[in-house]
Nucleic acid binder design. Sequence first.
DNA 1: CATCATAAGCTTACGACGTAAGGAGATCTC
DNA 2: GAGATCTCCTTACGTCGTAAGCTTATGATG
Lengths: 227, 227
Amino acid sequence: MAKPAGKADRTPRGRLSREEVLSTAITLADKGGIESLTMRRLGDELGVEAMSLYNHVANKEDLLNAMVDAVFSEIDLPSHSEGWKTSMRKRSISFRAALSRHPWATGLTDSGTNPGPATLRHHDRVIGTFRNAGFSVAMAAHAFSALDSYIYGFAMQEKSLPFTTEEETAAMAQIMLAQLPANEYPYLAELTADHVLKPGYNYGDEFPLGLDLILDGLERWLTSAAR
Amino acid sequence: MAKPAGKADRTPRGRLSREEVLSTAITLADKGGIESLTMRRLGDELGVEAMSLYNHVANKEDLLNAMVDAVFSEIDLPSHSEGWKTSMRKRSISFRAALSRHPWATGLTDSGTNPGPATLRHHDRVIGTFRNAGFSVAMAAHAFSALDSYIYGFAMQEKSLPFTTEEETAAMAQIMLAQLPANEYPYLAELTADHVLKPGYNYGDEFPLGLDLILDGLERWLTSAAR
DNA sequence: CATCATAAGCTTACGACGTAAGGAGATCTC
DNA sequence: GAGATCTCCTTACGTCGTAAGCTTATGATG
């Protein structure tokens, strides 16, 4: 009686905004993986037809790029004031945490082609932190490459694991161990049995070990001056 | 006259084999990127309808998993006899080269869920090399995680660069530098101008620097004994 | 308040995609 | 030489991103 026409069950809302589209897309991808994010489902979630999304987004690639930039905006920037090593450690941990919250972002490599403002700012601040600490331009580039390769790669390995919680890990490792021909892959079997299946194991805990290894290495580069 | 019926322009060949399907799929993905690999195109390339591929492959995921395993089979295994550091250095370089030849493999993370035999053998030999060198099980796990995260991440960054050759790099960097608001991202601008645009720059050259940083760090872990 | 351009939504449609179902012909086994 | 099996084909379905064009709500201008 009140509503004259149109879709019945559409949640009444003001107009859509790009931000709303973006954040819903991120939620969807977080929940069901990037392959579950389709324009139609995203539209559904927003109470709108798929084609209406194109009023706020040029195409799907534009959407994905913006999503990646949103992830970068969640990362704590290194502060120039705090000592390069601690502040770089913090931002690295924050970076990994962001990729862990949004695993789909790790594989969205096309965003390298045209990075958004948050991505650029992030990179600029990281390089700036190295430069201010006394790294030469070349050394800063090497440090940036080494450190971020590690972070990205770690996130990718983490994402590719078929388990998340400790219980899942244990269950999965049990199964894999049982399937694994132990005499053909003895070291893999040993590692699974004696390390992965130890109570309290969590792959994520490996992160700071490699991180500190690299940071210590970078510090050595720095103090050994010339390069 | 000779041929009684059927498709005219089909290259006469014996029956298809899984190996043939696999290697053609890899060639296709190498040439046009993973998104250009569709069942229909792969069929075309082999002179066969898309559906015929399902005689040799369970589904596309099976195909992709097998492709990743094929990439792993290209990597030089570390030899137990040679000293862990040099042999691990060799296999790391070989690993990166393989991912560089087949960039699509870097993103195919689902293969972590059920790795093929070449992948398992590779992992087993890597872990075995650490163990034989005196790493404890836990240290071997840490070393494996740190090193392979770096390699994977490096490959991913390399893949995401919008250029390959030195000329492309220079051209692209010029453009990006021109577009970049230099006062907003001063360190990025500096790095581009003074490092990337230097003649002879090639991002791939960064790889051994980070690699040696990690290997040296692992060696220090090893010699500092307990952990 | 009336008009009307613009923006934001909807409908329909197209050409890809992966693959289910089932049929036809070749090849192998006994 | 008969039957089973394997390989390939045709057809079809549901889903995807998105082009084209329509309708309606908004908000500025007279």
